[in-house]
């Protein structure tokens, strides 16, 4: 059975690592990202690493016009269509506080963009009767915190959508994995103060692949974040509202 992976946000460190992993297993990859020139180079990389086909395509979560060509590329592939979504943006909460309209971008990148894209893809997956979607959420979506609650809210919305989509696609043989990464060593976290137990993108990519194989519903990566977030979620609101964690 041939496998195709659509990778949204393929030029992010995690997207790149996951694309390589998929290529190494012999899957065709459709790499979608804003910077098409750089994405072409990633496609060449995936080809060297074993992908029978690696296609670069422009994608912008804020431009719904960019969705359709990707659906067409996917429909032209035989076999199972899968998708992994690595997009999102996390500006400083202080910048959003100063300019509230900035929040709109964060919500489009992390919530409405991916949701609308996946909604347009779902029926193709239903038709094929198979396929896995891996949606990258965030531990920030588990509870609103003073440091990044607009970003967190977008991710929380995305989590809820993914759980509904899982409910829907299960009926036709598909599956959805919700992923909540902790700190990952990417350009987004490079040099940020207060980072600890940082995972490499390769480690995360491996976790994602295993979770998809085992049809996990929600995973934290690295795994111990499940327990960190369990503690954070269990703090009573009257205490939590005074904390700055």
């Amino acid at each position: 059975m041939t496998e195709t992976w659509i990778i949204l946000g393929a030029s992010s460190a995690m997207g790149r690592a996951f694309a390589r992993h998929a290529a190494g297993t012999g899957a065709t990859v459709i790499l979608a990202a804003r910077d098409i020139e750089d994405t072409r180079r990633s496609a060449a990389d995936c080809k060297s690493r074993g992908a029978p086909q690696a296609i670069a395509v422009a994608f912008d979560a804020r431009k719904p016009d960019s969705f359709k060509p990707i659906y067409e590329l996917a429909a032209a592939q035989h076999g199972t269509i899968n998708a992994a979504v690595f997009i999102g943006s996390m500006p400083d909460q202080a910048d959003i506080d100063a300019n509230p309209m900035l929040g709109d971008d964060t919500i489009q990148d992390g919530f409405t963009g991916p949701v609308n894209f996946l909604h347009g893809l779902a029926h193709l997956m239903e038709e094929r009767g198979s396929g896995t979607i891996i949606g990258i959420g965030s531990v920030a979506g588990d509870r609103g915190r003073i440091g990044n609650y607009t970003y967190g809210a977008a991710k929380a919305g995305f989590h809820t959508y993914l759980s509904g989509l899982r409910n829907r696609l299960t009926r036709s043989g598909g599956h959805v994995v919700t992923v909540k990464p902790g700190f990952v060593d990417t350009a987004m976290t490079w040099g940020l103060p207060g980072m600890f137990l940082v995972a490499s993108p390769e480690q995360v990519a491996q976790d994602l692949w295993r979770a998809a194989e085992k049809k996990k519903n929600t995973i934290y990566t690295p795994w111990f974040w499940r327990y960190i977030m369990l503690i954070i979620r269990s703090i009573p609101e009257m205490v939590f509202k005074k904390l700055s964690v």
Binding site: A13, R41, A44, D45, S48, R49, A187
Partner: peptide, 19 residues
């Protein structure tokens, strides 16, 4: 270390271009 992609490989000649 993050600029670590293979750019092209020619299996006829064995010439590899990489970051």
């Amino acid at each position: 270390t993050r600029l670590d992609r293979f750019i092209g490989f020619a299996p006829e000649t064995g010439i590899l271009e990489a970051e």
